[in-house]
């Protein structure tokens, strides 16, 4: 099983890079995963990652991309709640890639 390496500890992930044990997540781990994804975390990235973590905490689900965009639009406005802004932050898909960095499972209902 592949794993992320962090300060001598290892955190296992699946073949797509999603961590297996959700409790193993930390901001430090998020940076390691982001680096693996070739993403340098900015405040804007963290805003989306934290939004996803809050959404998961409340609903026990990682939202599909269209749901994520709609909800970000509602809570942060349409300057951020759109495809262009979110794909600029997470080129491989704001739901899939941001969920991975947020330590969540792959989004449900992503087709």
């Amino acid at each position: 099983m592949a794993a992320y390496q962090m300060n001598g500890t290892t955190v296992e992930h699946d073949e797509e890079g999603y961590i297996l044990e959700l409790n193993a997540w930390s901001e430090e781990l998020a940076k390691v995963i982001a680096e693996d994804e070739k993403i340098e975390m900015t405040d804007e990235h963290w805003e989306v990652v934290n939004f996803l973590r809050d959404y998961y905490e409340e609903y026990q689900i990682a939202p599909a991309v269209r749901v994520l965009i709609k909800q970000i639009k509602k809570s942060m406005g349409k300057e951020k709640g759109n495809n262009k802004y979110l794909y600029a932050l997470f080129p491989y898909g704001p739901a899939k890639q941001a969920c991975k960095i947020a330590g969540l499972p792959k989004p449900t209902g992503c087709v």
């Binding site: 409340e58 609903y59 026990q60 689900i61 939202p63 599909a64 749901v67 709609k70 909800q71 209902g109």
Partner: peptide
């Protein structure tokens, strides 16, 4: 087991 009951409250978002 995972408590998936909160997910029903996300259905509106879908």
């Amino acid at each position: 087991m995972k408590n998936f009951s909160p997910t029903y409250r996300a259905l509106g978002d879908y």
